[in-house]
Design a binder for these strands. Structure first.
Lengths: 336, 336
DNA sequence: CTCTTGAATGTTAACGTTAACATTTCTCAT
DNA sequence: ATGAGAAATGTTAACGTTAACATTCAAGAG
């Protein structure tokens, strides 16, 4: 058992103990087959005895790359909607045997340039910036030449590749889904007005309705909670013509459903309700809620690819990843 | 604008362009005040022109440390219960201006030794291992001498510092809370039997009841979902004497509440219900659920401390971090 | 004008690793 | 035995940075 050796043993210490050159130790450490089994044994024994740990610093200095991708974030790692994308990047990295360096920024330093500045001195070959919906320097930010940069953002950026969930597409899909079931009076119930995602969903909904020549009723907005959904749902219950409701997230959808039921309407027989994020599975008894599930895994995978293997020239990519509808409860239009 | 320079500029390139020595560039890069303003200007200009990015590899090779902590995980980063601890580590790291290297392991490689082996070649000064509830090599694992190791685990380990949420303490607190309100017939509704957390909570509940000489009724177990909670709640509704229910998580608690109400009981007037994790805030209309909230931030902070600043000798720490009860709905015992 | 002093800048060496090349050792056909 | 060729191992140099020390320079005192 190692004893008192303060700093870790280097390849030279191992070499000396095993009676070989450092290069041979290096070969063993990297699994080269050009080492005699007997020698290999001795080296491995020496490594074990000294508790040898290869120096990442020296290796990557030599190699000129880190085999690691950086992810800069502000706010909660695991807030709904965010978590799957973070997980997606981590999974993509794991699959490529890359490490991932996570840099969490305090909210008051959550700008692209600050994130990039900090990331520059970390061991990463590429960076993925995933800040709040709208960092203050979004337009003016220029990525460092030495570090391939990807922004997770619904907005297009003039210098950086961008990827994100397709918020507009989400709305269009949902409207599609409902119209295919015969619904023509489809209302939108929004979350916070200052949320980019919420605004995009509303925009997509409105646009999809107009394309089809359907009736657009000015939507209500709340604050993403079920209680706010309930309140807005109670108002919508007065709307005699409405047969389908698109809620901007699942909590709102749940609130709306409860309000409709409390107003004597049947869900889904009278009114179909669908949410977004598919975040409430298993959490409410006897409630199967249809929802739109984003594909965070794919967003993460694409962000990883673009950051570690940036396209040479040409267009700057702006990729919107579609999700899918998880159908559990909406029904064909019925008369009310 | 930089143009075509394939690999990043080094300190030597900057020095040459600015007409100074590399040491002066180094001084500027590290904010030393022993550089004349005019010189500093020239160096900064050269850095900007070349898109200079300091080499993490060279710096840490020189320094002998990485200023970074590793977190190895298996499974979902953001599963309930896990997310706050991950976030806690990330936050602690950010506060100390450390980076965090996240290593995600596929489920079939989720052993402590594999995690440690992979982490050994990453740029970290210490590692935090946070695998599933019970990795196969928990008992036999020996941490590498060169890498301070902390395991996030409720179990005690003979060679590694361990930290975790105090599951037993959670149960004891909840029983305390309910007995203080006068409840004496307190039932437990469990999640999955193969979950370490669930088993600990049950054990703590049983122990706390016995200490007080209270009646212990053999608990039901389900699968963590609200539907399973509903089913078990429906059975408990038959239990005429029960006045308080401790559900092993919030979804179960919700299921139980609905079942009790459907059986004609009032919650909380007839029966108080409390859950664990405080995970359902804002997602169910008009439902304020009392819950036990773990202190993941503190678990993360302690894990970070132990990993980056390991105690010299003496006892191997095993720290259980208590959470707090978030009281929203339980009431004093009433007759039924 | 010289000397002293301190500020500014430069030089050297070392951190641990591995690609590229050089050397030694082994194996086997003659 | 001998030499050719292959296999195993060794040597050198370079990756980019900065601490420690060395040198140069500027400014003020005498």
């Amino acid at each position: 058992m190692a004893f008192g050796s303060s700093s870790s043993a280097s390849i030279a210490d191992v070499a000396k103990l095993a009676g070989v050159s450092t290069q041979t130790v290096s070969r063993v450490a990297n699994g080269s087959d050009a080492v005699r089994p007997a020698t290999k044994e001795r080296v491995l024994a020496a490594m074990a005895e000294l508790g040898y740990r290869p120096s990442f610093a020296a290796r990557s200095l030599r190699a000129g790359s880190y085999h690691s991708v950086g992810l800069a974030m502000s706010g909660d790692i695991a807030a709904t909607g965010r978590r799957y994308q973070v997980e997606g990047v981590a999974t993509a990295a794991a699959q490529h045997r890359y490490a991932m360096t996570l840099l969490q920024l305090p909210d008051d330093e959550a700008t692209l340039s600050e994130a990039s500045r900090r990331m520059s001195s970390l061991p990463v070959d590429g960076q993925i910036l995933y800040l709040g919906s709208d960092p203050s320097d979004f337009a003016s930010f220029e990525p460092p030449a030495a570090l391939p940069t990807v922004i997770i953002s619904t907005r297009h950026h003039s210098h950086c590749a961008t990827v994100s969930n397709d918020q507009m597409g989400c709305a269009v899909s949902i409207v599609n889904h409902l119209t295919q079931k015969g619904h023509r009076e489809i209302r939108f119930v929004g979350g916070r007005r200052d949320s980019y995602a919420n605004v995009s969903r509303q925009k997509g909904w409105e646009q999809a309705l107009r394309t089809r020549g359907l009736h657009v009723v000015e939507p209500f907005h709340g604050d993403w909670t079920a209680d706010s959904g309930y309140e807005l749902g109670a108002r919508l219950a007065q709307d005699e013509t409405c047969t389908a409701i698109f809620a901007s997230n699942d909590a709102i959808a749940v609130g709306v459903i409860y309000a409709l039921r409390d107003a004597g309407l049947r869900v889904p027989e009278d009114v179909s309700v669908i949410g977004v994020d598919d975040s409430l599975v298993g959490v409410i008894p006897h409630l199967d809620l249809s929802s739109y599930r984003f594909n965070g895994t794919r967003v993460g995978a694409i962000a990883f690819d673009l950051a570690t293997n940036p396209p040479e020239g040409g267009e700057i990519p702006h990729i919107l990843v579609p999700g899918t509808i998880v159908e559990r409860s909406t029904v064909a239009q019925a008369s009310r």
